[in-house]
Computed example of a mutant assay.
Amino acid sequence: MSDQNPHVNPSTVLRGAVDLSSLRNRPAPAEQAATPAVSGLVIEVTDATFGEVLQLSRTVPVVVDLWAEWCGPCKQLSPILEKVVTELAGRLVLAKVDVDANPQLAQGFRAQSIPMVVALVAGQPVPLFTGAVPEQQVRDVFDQLLQVAAQNGVTGTVDAAGGDTDADADTAEAPAEPELPPLHAEAFAAIEAGDYGRAAVAYEQALAENPRDEDARAGLAQVRLLQRVQGADLHEARDAAAAAPLQVDAQLAVADLDMAGGHVEDAFDRLLELFGALPSDERTPVRERLLELFGLVGDTDPRVGSARRRLTSLMF
């Protein structure tokens, strides 16, 4: 599995990236605790206690570290995650999941490769990255995650003992997050309600008023992606794509599902290979989809730069 997105574009929470529905109300066995074991800002999470973590993510963003004892890169990454979360002083919580001991969570997060790091914001997953990454990259991703959380209304903190702290209690120490512009707020409300069409209209109106509104542009790309993948079956889509390698719609469908699942490079590679294989008069839909996905991921992501260069070389 390729690395997940190490660049979180503000205003993008990729709903549907992982399926956590079966774990939301999972009853805890008698021999397991009903709530997560909290040590400072680090939580040890199990299949049974995950519902508590989802609830916590409505107050403060939760970073989920999927790891295993045998995983060398996990041992490199975990101390970095703990250090950065600790320095953020309660603005994030780190939830550690041993994938060997918690197979339902491993399956729910589609953890095909570890370490895998995903965030939860208001109960919704935000793919971050897989593999051991440098400390500065972790800091950059977490900074962007906090922007995403703020735009979703998740601005609380926890104290060192793990207790919730009223977000307003820290206003004297930290500047208040700016309110969302009205059209952005309308779009988020529509996303929360599952009305992606209404969210798209709000973002389109925001762009009409300010064509340089990059958050609106990224948000529009997100909701269009969500509209396309809603109700799609990954296995059926992959079978259809395998049966018709040059069928544009079939390949676009799998690329969308890869992107929604956080497999950015897989999505780009599929579309670039398709673009190169098609006659020049059939390439336009593929190029347009690539450009849309570039905007969703963000131009500062190095994978976008690499993919853009590949696209340019294929065009000329």
Rank of each mutant, 00 (worst) to 15 (best):
L311W: 11
E204P: 03
G51Q: 01
D170Y: 07
G40D: 01
N102T: 10
V297R: 08
P285W: 10
G162P: 01
A208G: 07
R303L: 03
G276R: 07
M116R: 07
A132D: 06
A172P: 04
D166E: 10
A260L: 10
R198I: 01
A187Q: 10
P27Q: 09
D164K: 14
E204I: 03
A200M: 10
V18H: 14
T86N: 12
Q205K: 14
G153E: 05
V8T: 13
L183C: 04
Q32A: 15
Q107F: 08
G90N: 02
V133R: 10
E282W: 05
A149D: 08
L92K: 01
L271A: 08
D249S: 12
F275P: 00
A199F: 07
Q227E: 14
C74A: 10
A167S: 13
R228D: 09
P115R: 13
V42L: 03
R310H: 10
L257N: 12
Q144W: 00
A101W: 02
P181S: 11
L278D: 11
E192A: 13
T46R: 14
R303C: 03
E82C: 00
L54M: 12
Q222F: 03
D213C: 08
E69K: 12
E265C: 00
L92I: 02
L128M: 15
A101I: 02
G262W: 07
D281R: 09
A174R: 15
E82Y: 00
T155G: 01
T157Q: 09
N152T: 08
Q112P: 00
D266P: 02
G163Q: 15
S57M: 03
V254F: 13
Q227A: 14
V85Y: 01
A89M: 02
L92H: 00
V121S: 03
G123H: 12
A89H: 01
A111K: 11
L146M: 13
D281Q: 13
G276K: 04
L146S: 03
D299G: 12
R26M: 12
D168F: 00
